[in-house]
Design a protein around this nucleic acid. Sequence first.
DNA 1: AAGAATAAGTTAGTATCCTAACGAATCAAT
DNA 2: ATTGATTCGTTAGGATACTAACTTATTCTT
Lengths: 153, 153
Amino acid sequence: MDEEHAPVDAAPMWLHRSVAPKLHLTAKSCRAFFEERLAESGTTFAVWTVLATLKMEGPMIQRALAWHLNIEGPTLSRHLESMERRGLVVRKRTDADRRAAAVELTQEGERMYARIEKVAIEGQREMLQGFSDKDIELLNGLLDRLLGNVGSD
Amino acid sequence: MDEEHAPVDAAPMWLHRSVAPKLHLTAKSCRAFFEERLAESGTTFAVWTVLATLKMEGPMIQRALAWHLNIEGPTLSRHLESMERRGLVVRKRTDADRRAAAVELTQEGERMYARIEKVAIEGQREMLQGFSDKDIELLNGLLDRLLGNVGSD
DNA sequence: AAGAATAAGTTAGTATCCTAACGAATCAAT
DNA sequence: ATTGATTCGTTAGGATACTAACTTATTCTT
């Protein structure tokens, strides 16, 4: 986003009435907000989600990881390539299934995660300033219902 | 999104607790939903928002248009270039300020807008199935509060 | 009135994401 | 057991968006 953009309240009326563009803008702004903070720690939103998923869910093959992240295989391939180059993860191919590659956090990856976990939590706290638990629940519920309506499953 | 992805409810817990990734996923899914429908009419989400803004707000220079769309100048330049090639808009440079270019819908642009307006409205109706007016208001309010918290203004 | 600062738009380069097409490995089915 | 379909990952190419750097035009300052 641009500093020079006027306050959000100044956005045109039709945009307010159309939910999709507004949702889009909010997500974009929130992502930019996190990207900014994560960039200061030398990483990105994309890398954060990969690290967090591996940390929370344990090692898994790329296909499963892509599913968790809601991105496609080729997108994940790219991220993993750079993350592997940076030593954050390793891709281990086993004899059990020589197609699949299990992705694991390295020690360096664990360290990075520990470092940015704080950033992510603080970012979320800031993002949700003034939100009660009930507000968050409400938001989650509304988003889930949207997802259900547009879902491709 | 991928047909093979399991229902949204199956997403991992940490993702549900983190608002940003969930918001991001919802926006992505909603956009994909609109892109699909607009693609059938031979256009895109990006083009739709340009057409709609020009229709609702009238002709304006690129900088103003970019502000309305919450995108940066270079991004808009690209869109306008292709839209102008397709005859949907014209960029008119005036003597009043020879830097600025006023962007206007052409008749072809008007026709295209009329065509996809229906698609957009129907898409939104589908997206918001089961939402009461109050739900929509609530969602709008929550998104506005998020925007306020992360806003770059 | 001249020089500096600012503004509009473009060009160039990058990041994230997608789909399509592919190669290699596995599974299924006759 | 061989053929055929499916699965896993990669490569190639495209869309959308960004920032940085540039050109040209305008405005501000002195």
